[in-house]
Design a binder for these strands. Structure first.
Length: 483
RNA sequence: CGGGAUGUAGCGCAGCCUGGUAGCGCACCUGCUUGGGGUGCAGGUGGUCGUGGGUUCAAAUCCCGCCAUCCCGACCA
């Protein structure tokens, strides 16, 4: 029997998805509101998710050849203003420092909204020769963008991210890098977060301020809205020009390098929550779960659990920990087993491992999957292997489920009436033709709140007609209402 | 930044209409009990009622301003 009073603390997903999201994030203790609007506290349980994601992302970034560095938080106003489109895009949402040490500063300092404006000038100092290229730098940092509407993880005033910044000798290499990172992000999202995405190029109206081209991965959330989960920008020679980055090529000519920048943020945590969560709370993919396994010891009816159950449970924890499994022993004696089950389900732990008196007798335990709630009596001999297998199964099942939902949430629409109908009703991704006119894109947004999320890299079909105006379309694009 | 709603204990709410100095459930603390799907009983801690002013002998309650949050639009990772 479930206790309605406690169950109802999480709003059902179907009733109010936004409220469900907030309930889960707060109750699972991923985050809490700070004193400043839009500035959330990432609590230990939430930060552990970030650390797991960060570790794997960092590994993959380094595998592309990039190295980590750290640049200053504060950017002089004049630096930010060097690239015209860039400053126009970002200054409205900049926070400024105007007083230091009790005195008005001669020049206001922006708290970075992104770091091109501080990294590029430094690269200009460091790059002299074609031999210095490519430059591939990544930074893990916090940034501030003064947003009006905020939500934990999805849109916060301050957030954590990684931002890569690279320089290349040729246009081809720049584009190649931009796409390599896009693919890395795509695979990370699928393989690590079990969050399948669509990917492609952004339209002119959606591209990064100052970029030549922007590419992105977009995931589909449980309420039918799209979440941009990572972006990769080909900056062309815009920033090299603005910041005076030049090098001597093999032919002794002074030329401008081609630059890229790319980023993923704590927003992905919000994506994880909305992709896999259910009415009981979070469901974490094992790859990034703070605890992959929680061990719940069951006290005997008579006597002390210290006699047999707890020592056995501790043994199990040690065994798994030695195998590199992130495992937590819930030995609180103030809470009953049933409470703990519900609690850890709400917190999204992929596998629960029960050890009770009956199990001790039989030298077994009970393994329960969070995603399917499937129970399996498992011999303690060879437990590590069984746990690994179960974790892999959960990871695979979450990806498969999310992939199915992405497919089911993607509708190919023929006409504008159908477009509007689907966008009103179940939403999701709508694949439809587009004439390429920004005005048409803007009208569609006005009329349906949907924007073009990506233009696929390889159009499946060429040709077709714009879903709104009927003019010729190069290829179908992905529309969705976005977070 | 426009339209709507709400601010009373950590959370969810009642009290307000008809002014008289605050209550319930959950959570939390103590003890016993229970323990394989959210145990039960008893006792207890905790609130200058968002904020500033006004009316009044007296304001959570009536009046005015401000602030914050949420929802719906415009802007955004």
């Amino acid at each position: 029997m479930t206790d309605e009073r406690t169950m109802k603390e999480i709003t059902p997903r179907g009733q109010d998805f936004s409220q469900w999201y907030l309930d889960v994030v707060l109750k699972a203790e991923l985050a809490d509101y700070g004193p400043v609007k839009g500035c959330m506290v990432i609590r230990p349980y939430g930060y552990a998710v970030w650390e797991a994601m960060q570790a794997e992302m960092d590994r993959r970034i380094k595998a592309t050849g990039a190295v980590n560095a750290y640049f200053p938080l504060l950017i002089p106003k004049s630096f930010l203003e060097r690239e015209k489109e860039h400053v126009e895009g970002f200054s409205p949402e900049c926070a400024w420092v105007t007083v230091g040490g009790g005195e008005e500063l001669e020049e206001p300092l922006a708290i970075r909204p992104t770091s091109e404006a501080i990294i590029c000038p430094m690269l200009a100092k460091w790059v002299r020769s074609w031999r210095d290229l490519p430059v591939m730098i990544n930074q893990w940092a916090n940034i501030v963008r003064w947003e009006k509407v905020t939500r934990p993880f999805l849109r916060t005033t301050e957030f954590l991210w990684q931002e890569g910044h690279t320089l290349h000798a040729t246009a081809e290499e720049g584009e190649e890098e931009t796409l390599r990172i896009l693919d890395m992000y795509r695979r990370f999202s699928e393989e690590v977060l079990a969050m399948p995405v669509v990917w492609g190029r952004k339209t002119e109206s959606q591209k990064f301020a100052g970029a030549l081209r922007t590419y992105a991965i977009e995931a589909l959330m449980g309420d039918g809205k799209a979440l941009q989960a990572g972006t990769s920008h080909n900056l062309g020679q815009h920033f090299a020009t603005a910041y005076g980055i030049e090098f001597l090529d093999r032919d002794q000519r002074r030329v401008l390098p081609w630059s890229t920048s790319w980023g993923t943020s704590t927003r992905m945590i919000g994506g994880l929550v909305m992709t896999h969560g259910d009415d009981s709370g979070l469901v974490f993919p094992p790859s990034v779960a703070p605890y992959q396994v929680v061990v719940v010891p069951i006290p005997p009816r008579k006597g002390d659990w210290n006699e047999a159950v707890l020592p056995k449970a501790r043994g199990v924890v040690e065994t798994l920990r030695a195998e590199g499994v992130r495992v937590h022993l819930d030995d609180r004696d103030t809470q009953q087993p049933g409470y703990k089950y519900a609690d850890w389900e709400m917190r999204g732990v992929p596998l629960r491992l029960e050890v009770g008196p009956k199990d001790v007798e039989k030298d077994q335990c009970v393994l329960v999957r969070r995603d399917s709630r499937e129970k399996a009596f498992t011999p303690l001999a060879g437990l590590a292997g069984a746990v690994r297998e179960a974790l892999a199964a959960v990871q695979a099942a979450l990806l498969a489920g999310a992939r199915r939902r992405l497919e089911e949430g993607t509708t190919r629409v023929a006409g504008y009436d159908q477009f509007k109908e689907v966008m009103e009703d179940k939403r999701g991704f709508l694949v439809a033709g587009w004439c390429g006119d920004a005005a048409c894109e803007a009208r569609i947004k006005e009329e349906t709140r949907a924007t073009i999320r990506v233009v696929p890299l390889e159009g499946e079909e060429k040709g077709g007609a714009c879903v709104r105006c009927g003019r010729p379309s190069d290829q179908p694009v992905y529309f969705a209402q976005a977070y």
